[in-house]
């Protein structure tokens, strides 16, 4: 009789109107079918035959349902559920395909994440540690709250990386035990859950690694200008010396010495144009010229020196003096910025 109940489910579930109406219709149709089965049984049929005959005489469930819906209306939700069930039945036939695909994707994701972490552990983290040891990245940057986890995490990652072989062996052992011992009908779902959890965990680890490495460089950047400062000071000193030499050679009209020093000063300025952050105080957060402003001043100074070189070539004393005046105008703020920075450093020390 389960067949009759299933049939009645198919016919009655989407009929519109109140629940009591559906129950009445279901009972009425059920009584009819049971009467028909009883008559066929009394006619000598077996029960399965009698049920099949009664259902066949009654008509296909779709037709009967459509006629009842034409009289009583239909409910939307059961129609949607019916469609979903049909889709499910269709797709479940390809269950093995979905399960295999899900396994493949998860294994691929896990493999990529493991490769990323291995690469980070073997190449990036040791390099970062070397940069920190060399002082290129300030360790003090990780003493602020919110950044303290970075060195600890990277140390942990490095530690885990040193035991990669054991970790892989452990995972392989657990996997082998699972495949050997577990006999549940939900085995593939358990496996998928485990793989999915591992993939999510590794995704978090990869994100933390990427964040730790990126933040380390961002936080370490302030050390770069400190490291470059001696080079900047050296360049500024060289420019000062060269320009002073030009000024000393000007009264005696030593054009050769002037040319040589003008070239040297121009080279120094040109070098600083490419690395303006090397000028002490250039990257300070306080009120100092910005990098763009410094670059503008350096360009102007370089242009003045070019004019001075041309005037020296033309042996034009007034031209040289005018070019040096222009040079000082542009160069003075650079010198002041460097002096202030040196003063601040001295005061800090």
């Amino acid at each position: 009789m389960d067949k009759i109940e299933h049939y009645l489910d198919q016919v009655c579930r989407s009929i519109g109107g109140p629940r009591s109406l559906r129950q009445h219709i279901r009972q009425e149709l059920g009584e009819h079918l049971r009467d028909a089965v009883a008559e066929h049984l009394s006619g000598g049929m077996s029960e399965p035959e009698a049920i099949d005959r009664a259902l066949a005489d009654f008509g296909g469930p779709e037709q009967v349902r459509a006629e009842l819906e034409a009289t009583h209306g239909h409910r939307l939700l059961p129609v949607v559920i019916d469609k979903a069930m049909q889709w499910k039945e269709k797709t479940m036939r390809a269950k093995w395909l979905w399960v295999t695909w899900a396994h493949l994707v998860l294994v691929l994701v896990i493999a990529l994440e493991v490769l990323t972490l291995t690469f980070a552990t073997m190449f990036l983290v040791p390099r970062l540690e070397k940069l920190m040891r060399d002082g290129l990245i300030i360790p003090a940057a990780f003493e602020e709250s919110g950044t303290q986890w970075i060195p600890a995490f990277l140390r942990g990652l490095n530690g885990a990386g040193q035991h990669t072989t054991w970790i892989i062996l452990g995972v392989a052992l657990v996997g082998a035990l699972f495949e050997w011992r577990v006999r549940s009908e939900n085995k593939s779902f358990i496996r998928l859950s485990a793989l999915g959890t591992a993939a999510v965990g590794l995704t978090v680890a990869v994100a933390l690694t990427a964040g730790a490495l990126t933040l380390s460089f961002f936080l370490g950047l302030p050390a770069m200008d400190r490291i470059a400062a001696p080079f900047g000071i050296e360049q500024l000193a060289s420019i000062d010396t060269s320009v002073s030499a030009i000024e000393r050679a000007l009264p005696t009209k030593d054009w050769e010495a002037m040319q040589e020093n003008a070239n040297r000063a121009a080279r120094g300025v040109n070098t600083l144009v490419n690395v303006p952050f090397a000028i002490p105080g250039a990257t300070s957060r306080r009120e100092r010229p910005t990098i763009d402003e410094l670059r503008g001043l350096l360009d102007a100074a370089h242009e003045s020196l070019r004019q001075a070189q041309q005037a020296i070539q033309a042996k034009d004393v007034e031209g040289v003096e005018a070019a040096l005046r222009d040079f000082r105008k542009s160069y003075h703020p650079l010198r002041e910025a460097a002096k202030k920075s040196s003063g601040d450093e001295g005061a800090r020390q």
Binding site: E28, D57, F58, Q63, V64, E67, L68, A70
Partner: peptide, 8 residues
């Protein structure tokens, strides 16, 4: 006839 069509 299809007996089911009696009820509608």
């Amino acid at each position: 006839w299809r007996e089911g069509s009696l009820y509608p």
